[in-house]
């Protein structure tokens, strides 16, 4: 067999295996989506978004308070983690090879890999116990701790991707280094940084474990950060682990809503990125 034929064979074999692996990886993903839509679509109704859950025995009701709770807690978590994460990302990207920077980066990586239940336990001990009660603030804090490493590291990576010659061009124009960082480096990386934040939001919106003993969940409308608050994943957990068929149906519908929201967040991030890059040849 000639060398050429041998290479062609190896090439085809390699491509075939890659294609097969892709298909296998898509199987669980697609089946989850199909399953969700086929089970959840029937339960979708206007009331699902606007009404409170009804006690067992009554028909109807919704998960409105959980949608609101997820919105509030993810929003507060974003306000807490975004400024901190972006600033930490800048520090990591611009801090050179100092020991401090290496330690912070290592800690961020460990935190990113930490099980979310551990974060929940931490916030329970640090906030819920001293305050003698579950609260939406504790839930938001737990989500913020989860989002922080994602935002920090993605900001750092994206700042590093900005070509060094853009930085130099800014410096050579007589801009101070901090101004170059903000107005040139961060600005160039902004679409990517926004994507990283959206991914962090998407992840936080789907978290259940850290909310179990921080926000706790609620069956009522809650606006106050110092009170227990519902969240969509928590509500799904409650509904799905109940013995009632009607509640299971609602759990499917709520899960479909949650996945759709996460999907929209991701699409939104992509849209923002693409539009920002539309004019530039990056």
């Amino acid at each position: 067999m000639s060398l050429f034929r041998h290479r062609r064979l190896v090439d085809r074999l390699g491509r075939g295996l890659c294609g097969l692996a892709t298909l296998l990886a898509l199987v669980p993903l697609v089946s989850v989506l199909v399953w969700l839509v086929s089970h959840g679509a029937r339960g979708l109704s206007f009331a699902l978004f606007t009404e409170l859950p009804k006690p067992f025995g009554e028909v109807g009701g919704g998960v409105g308070q959980a949608l609101l709770g997820t919105g509030i807690m993810v929003g507060v978590a974003l306000l807490l983690s975004m400024p901190l994460g972006i600033l930490a990302g800048i520090a990591l990207a611009e801090g050179g090879k100092s020991r401090f920077v290496q330690i912070v980066r290592f800690v961020a990586d460990v935190l990113a890999g930490a099980p979310s239940i551990a974060v929940g336990v931490f916030v329970y001990t640090a906030v819920v116990m001293p305050m003698h009660g579950f609260s939406a603030f504790a839930g938001a804090l737990a989500l913020a701790v989860l989002m922080l490493p994602t935002i920090t590291r993605s900001t750092e990576e994206l700042l590093r991707l900005v070509p060094i010659h853009l930085r130099e061009a800014g410096l050579a124009l007589g801009l101070p280094a901090w101004r170059v960082t903000l107005s040139v480096t961060l600005k160039s990386a902004l679409p990517g940084v926004a994507t990283g934040i959206m991914l962090a939001v998407a992840r936080a919106a789907g978290e259940t474990a850290p909310l179990l003993f921080t926000a706790f969940g609620s069956q009522y409308w809650a606006w106050n950060l110092s009170e227990p608050m519902a969240a969509l994943p928590l509500q799904i957990f409650t509904l799905a682990s109940s013995p009632f068929e009607a509640w299971h149906q609602q759990a499917w519908a709520a899960a479909l809503v949650l996945v759709t929201l996460v999907l929209l967040a991701n699409l939104g991030a992509r849209f923002v990125t693409r539009r920002a890059r539309g004019g530039m040849a990056l």
């Binding site: 130099e168 061009a169 800014g170 124009l173 007589g174 160039s188 902004l190």
Partner: peptide, 16 residues
């Protein structure tokens, strides 16, 4: 650097 300007090898317009 305000008194001594610089132009680089690669054109570096700010893409944004």
């Amino acid at each position: 650097r305000r008194r001594v300007g610089m132009v680089f090898q690669k054109p570096t317009p700010f893409p944004f």
